[in-house]
């Protein structure tokens, strides 16, 4: 086993275990902390694929910003294991079925994809480096990029409007 493989298995086990713990833990704060570990593990996978930019942006945006807001909300509402309402049994069943259906769709979609012949480019792929990513983003995909920036702008304006409503 090479060092990369050892890291791959370690990160995979860590990611799946933390994801399960995130769903399973009763205390919402613990769920958030497990989810942060999941993000770290996934960023580790990105690094293994030589997509360093993606890895660090994943950390900055998800672990650094969004999860902090989650923590804010949960801490200020003082949610903990006692106040967490128990969902009713049928709702849980529905959740399991919906999740299972999603998994089925994924498997069906990936079954025929030509993945077997394409090995993962560990440590050799160049597309994830910031230089190549920037070039393809601003040459080949300028229009989608601009459109998504309009989307972000409207989200920002919406947030400001909501925040100003009560003044």
């Amino acid at each position: 086993m090479s060092a990369t493989q050892v890291l791959f298995w370690f990160l995979s086990v860590l990611a799946i275990f933390s994801a399960i713990m995130m769903v399973a833990s009763k205390n919402p704060i613990h769920s958030v902390l497990w989810l942060i570990i999941v993000f770290f593990a996934i960023s580790g996978h990105y690094v293994l694929l030589n997509a360093q930019f993606l890895a660090i942006v994943n950390l900055i945006v998800y672990a650094g910003a969004i999860m902090v807001l989650f923590l804010f909300v949960i801490m200020l509402m003082n949610l903990n294991a006692d106040t967490e309402p128990q969902k009713n049994k049928w709702l849980k069943m529905a959740g399991v079925i919906a999740g299972g259906a999603l998994l089925l769709v994924f498997v069906a979609a990936l079954k025929n994809a030509d993945l077997k012949n394409q090995l993962v480019q560990t440590n050799s792929g160049e597309i994830g480096l910031i230089n190549n990513l920037g070039l393809s983003l601003f040459h080949d995909y300028v229009v989608p990029f601009e459109v998504s920036s309009v989307l972000f702008l409207s989200a920002m304006v919406g947030a400001v409007v909501i925040a100003k409503k009560n003044d």
Binding site: I36, Q52, F53, I56, V57, L59, I60, A63, G64, A65, V68, L129, I130, N131
Partner: peptide, 18 residues
């Protein structure tokens, strides 16, 4: 000497909140 040096610093700083 990673090629995302500054972003790495930024990422770690944003972890400082935890």
């Amino acid at each position: 000497d990673i090629n995302i040096g500054i972003l790495y610093i930024f990422g770690v700083v944003s972890m400082g909140v935890y």
